[in-house]
């Protein structure tokens, strides 16, 4: 019999006391500032008068009615969806290959593939800027000498470039999520399918993929939400004109100085992401309920 955690009131009090400092920190420095930001999005702002602490819907009406913002949000989500698809299409097979590797190679390549996660995103995006470089960037040179394209493609200041760089930045999350799901797989099950006469492609499609699907989907949710709120990559690759939600909010705050409007953009981004993430999590849990029980 395992030791049972006692549930008496004095224990509960000790628990709460231990968690109290962190709770106070979070209330003071997360909950209150977020509430202030939501409030800020309802304030008025003028070029000369600055922020006026009134309660109006001006910023929200502007965001909803002006097609400029609609296009910007649409771009944010389009880029995020494409980046998510790319990470899934390439990250899932790579995680599978990685999982089949032997001993030290496995560890080495895992380090190489998920290590970039912790390397400065500015440095990584700078790398893409160098690779893309104008017309004679390395990528274009490579594609042209290999005969894949006849004339150079534009990567810098385009959505294509943004999607590629974002997919690169987010790839480790996908590989990690799928890798974790693969670790839970019983390797004997694959062998069982092989012994029953299934080809290796059938094994992957019918046996492996269905089992790791929850991992793929939870990886996709992480990648999507991080891509949709990414700042550094869109700012460096997209430049000043190709705006996404995060870069727009930044501009409103630090260039235009229209804080209430910037706050409204940020709050909308937060709400949209929370709805999408919570919604798809609930869907996944319902769909794969029996697998988690």
């Amino acid at each position: 019999m395992s030791t049972t955690v006692s549930a008496n009131p004095s224990d509960a009090r000790t628990g709460l006391t231990l968690a109290l400092p962190a709770l106070m920190l979070f209330t003071g420095v997360v909950v209150i500032p977020l509430a202030m930001t939501v409030l800020l999005s309802f304030h008025d702002w003028g070029q000369y008068k600055g922020i006026e602490p009134v309660f109006i819907l001006k910023n929200w009406i502007e965001i909803v009615s002006d097609p400029y913002y609609a296009e910007m949000f649409w771009r944010t989500f389009r880029v995020a969806v494409l980046a998510t698809l790319i990470t899934a299409v390439f990250g899932v097979p790579e995680a599978y290959i990685l999982n089949r590797m032997q001993g030290p190679w496995k560890g080495l390549f895992l380090l190489i593939i998920i290590g970039p996660l912790l390397i400065s995103v500015v440095a990584r995006t700078l790398g893409w800027a160098l690779l893309f470089g104008g017309n004679n960037g390395l990528v274009n040179k490579l594609l042209m000498t290999s005969g894949l394209i006849a004339s150079p493609l534009r990567f810098m200041f385009t959505e294509t470039g943004m999607v590629i760089a974002l997919a690169h930045a987010m790839m480790p999350f996908m590989v990690l999520a799928v890798w974790t799901a693969l670790q839970r797989l019983d390797p004997q099950v694959e062998n069982a399918a092989l012994s029953l006469g299934a080809g290796s492609f059938t094994v992957i499609r019918r046996i492996v993929l269905p089992q790791i699907m929850p991992g793929v989907l939870s990886g996709a949710i992480i990648v999507f939400s991080l891509s949709a709120s990414a700042f550094a990559t869109p700012a460096i690759i997209g430049g000043r004109r190709l705006k996404v939600a995060a870069t727009l909010a930044y501009d409103e705050f630090l260039n235009t100085l229209n804080w209430p409007l910037g706050a409204a953009v940020a709050v909308l981004l937060l709400i949209a992401l929370v709805l999408i993430v919570v919604g798809s999590n609930a869907l996944i849990e319902r769909r794969y309920q029996e697998m988690f029980r």
């Binding site: 979070f26 997360v30 202030m36 930001t37 800020l40 939400s225 709120s229 937060l270 992401l273």
Partner: peptide
């Protein structure tokens, strides 16, 4: 764990305001 969920742009804005 919520700071992992909240976009850092939003956190940055909230902190700046606060």
């Amino acid at each position: 764990l919520s700071p992992l969920m909240i976009p850092h742009v939003v956190l940055g804005i909230a902190f700046l305001r606060f």
